[in-house]
């Protein structure tokens, strides 16, 4: 079961709910940039925000598209884009009213999907779903929790909010 959200989907940014026009702000205690492997390793309460979406983790590794030979060392080249992100330590992804947590997270640009892996919980408003793995499709903004799934839906008795709150688009 996937508490799909009816959201006008724009081509997803890097973080669930974010849109890719927004720059990504990443803050951390330490950042190591490895030029040969073209990767950025953030460590120490990492907070990555894109638009309204936020990802928190203890370490975040961003892999950039490999540079072609002859690109200057010492800096990501202009053509380098983020192709994959790996977050570790308890990972929390917040996107508007959805909060997903898990042991580790992966963003794969080629599939434009975000995975949360390892005792995952996805809360949306009052509804909580637990499982082993959460797959969030950035294009359709649909989150699917797989593995041993346990969901809890609270009947929302307040009259104004109908069962599925349509998320506001930016």
């Amino acid at each position: 079961i996937s508490p799909a959200l009816a959201q006008k989907s724009n081509s997803g940014g890097v973080l669930p709910g974010g849109n890719s026009k927004e720059p990504i702000n990443v803050e951390a205690a330490k950042l190591d940039y490895f030029d040969k492997e073209q990767k950025l390793v953030y460590t120490g309460n990492v907070v990555a925000t894109q638009g309204e979406s936020k990802l928190k983790a203890t370490t975040l590794v961003i892999f950039l598209t490999p540079k072609d030979a002859g690109e200057p060392a010492g800096a990501p080249s202009s053509s380098s884009q983020m192709r994959r992100m790996e977050a570790a330590g308890p990972v929390t992804v917040i996107s508007k009213d959805q909060i997903g947590t898990g042991d580790s997270g992966i963003y794969e640009k080629s599939e434009s999907k975000v995975y949360l892996i390892g005792n995952v919980t996805l809360t949306q408003g009052a509804n909580v779903t637990k499982g082993d793995k959460l797959i969030y499709d950035l294009n359709t903004n649909q989150a699917a929790v797989t593995g041993r799934v346990r969901s809890m839906f609270l009947p929302s008795n307040s009259d104004d909010a109908n069962h599925k709150k349509p998320a506001k688009t930016q």
Binding site: V26, E27, K30, D32, D35, Y42, P72, G74
Partner: peptide, 14 residues
């Protein structure tokens, strides 16, 4: 240039 490290209140905008 093969490795660049930043420490302390790292803020980066990509």
């Amino acid at each position: 240039g093969r490795k660049v490290s930043f420490e302390g209140a790292v803020k980066s905008l990509i």
